[in-house]
Amino acid sequence: MAYVVSAKWTAKEGEAQRVEEAIRKLVEPSRREPGNLFYQPHRDPGNPNLFYFYEQYEDEEAYEAHVNSEHFQKYGFGEAIPLLESREREFYETMDV
């Protein structure tokens, strides 16, 4: 089973470009994390302020390591998140089928 994170970030009006720039800085270091299985940001074509993340980790501890990583602290909490109107997260586990 993988630990799955589904996250939705909504940028404040006028801040979407800066949020996108911070997200782009997050992608490669996040994908290189030891416990990361999949990390893909998305942008809503009908609402450029809306960003969606689909992420998979080996386990919850790997996700916590991601949140506490230097790059997420710098680009996530330091740059993108202060520019958000809202931030939602949901957590799942994959089914062994």
Rank of each mutant, 00 (worst) to 15 (best):
E60M: 04
R31Q: 14
K12D: 06
A11C: 10
E79C: 11
F91V: 01
A7K: 03
I81P: 00
E60Q: 09
H66M: 02
S69D: 06
Y63N: 08
I23G: 03
F72D: 00
V27C: 10
A62C: 14
L26P: 00
F91R: 02
I81C: 04
E79L: 12
V4W: 03
E90P: 03
L84W: 03
R24Q: 15
R43D: 11
Q17M: 14
E13S: 08
P34N: 13
A80W: 06
H66I: 00
E58I: 03
A16S: 13
P34Q: 13
E90D: 10
F72L: 00
N68D: 05
R32M: 12
L50A: 13
A2T: 07
Y75W: 15
D59L: 01
A80H: 03
G14Y: 08
L83F: 12
Y3V: 02
K8F: 06
K12H: 05
L37P: 01
P29G: 08
G14C: 10
N47T: 04
G76P: 04
Q56G: 11
F72C: 04
E28S: 14
Q73Y: 12
K25W: 00
H66T: 01
G78W: 02
Y54N: 11
K8V: 13
V67Q: 05
K74N: 06
S86L: 07
N49K: 12
R31D: 11
N47E: 15
S86Y: 12
V19H: 01
M95F: 13
E21C: 01
E15N: 15
P82L: 01
Q73I: 09
W9Y: 11
P34H: 13
A62S: 15
N49H: 14
H71K: 05
L37Q: 05
N68F: 02
Y3N: 05
D44C: 13
E28K: 08
Y54S: 08
I23Y: 00
E58T: 03
A16C: 12
E64G: 07
E64W: 09
V19G: 06
E79S: 11
W9C: 00
Q40M: 10
V4K: 02
F53Q: 04
E79Y: 14
E55S: 04
G35M: 02
Y92T: 08
L37Y: 02
D44A: 09
D96P: 09
L50Y: 08
E21P: 00
A22L: 07
P48W: 09
L84F: 03
F72T: 03
Y54G: 09
T10F: 00
